[in-house]
Write a protein that binds this DNA or RNA. Structure first.
Length: 198
DNA sequence: CCCTGATTCGC
DNA sequence: GCGAATCAGG
């Protein structure tokens, strides 16, 4: 493949958004991350190293939204049943238990895009963990099912019935199917669950 | 180990 | 110009 204007543009866009070279390579297809990095340098998009320019870098990145329609108001969607392919004996000590991928099949479909009402089970998860998750979702790799690997967080975000659906994709925590933040809501000490209402 | 970006250098 | 190989971290 060659660096058509279109591809270069996407490259610039993604690089500007802070996407990694490997991600950009996957998006573009037909090129390796090395190719992307090489191109980035040739384009002079490299970072501000060696240099100076101090930290004037105004990094306000509240919404690096792509194209197409609407903004994703980050609906706090819950996983309906993550593909937990890591049967790797968690051996979660006796103080841990799985709580996240609850609600195997939600009876009714909640339209995405709209603020979802607090899920019942949400109250069983520590507020800190939830805050961490919503924060982490902004840094998520937003991978598709096909892009998941043994070491990318498999926490689903959004409604599978819509376009606004993807998997976290951040590096998983050793041995776990999720990244640190998601492990936080997926596995938690029973102690914290004990008193929690219900 | 897995992942990052940076550099080199033959093509 | 291109990008695999390699290097240097995290």
């Amino acid at each position: 493949m060659s660096w058509t204007d279109e591809r270069v543009e996407l490259l610039k866009k993604m690089w500007g958004e802070g996407q990694s070279a490997s991600q950009i390579a996957k998006e573009l297809g037909g090129v390796t991350r090395n190719a992307v990095i090489g191109k980035v340098h040739r384009l002079g998009l490299s970072n501000r190293t060696g240099g100076e320019a101090a930290e004037a870098a105004p990094k306000a990145e509240p919404a690096p939204e792509p194209k197409a329609k609407a903004k994703r108001a980050e609906p706090k969607a819950k996983p309906s049943e993550p593909k937990n392919d890591a049967p790797t004996a968690e051996a979660p000590a006796e103080e841990t238990q799985i709580t996240a991928p609850a609600q195997p099949q939600r009876p009714k479909i909640i339209p995405a895009g709209q603020p979802l009402p607090p899920q019942p089970s949400a109250n069983e998860i520590s507020p800190e963990a939830l805050a961490k998750v919503s924060a982490i979702e902004k840094k998520a790799k937003r991978l598709t099912l096909m892009e998941l690997t043994e070491r990318t967080c498999k926490w689903p975000v959004g409604d599978p019935a819509t376009e606004d659906f993807w998997f976290c994709g951040l590096p998983v925590q050793q041995g776990k199917p999720y990244c640190e933040a998601h492990v936080g809501v997926a596995f938690q000490p029973m102690s914290s669950r004990r008193d929690r209402r219900r």
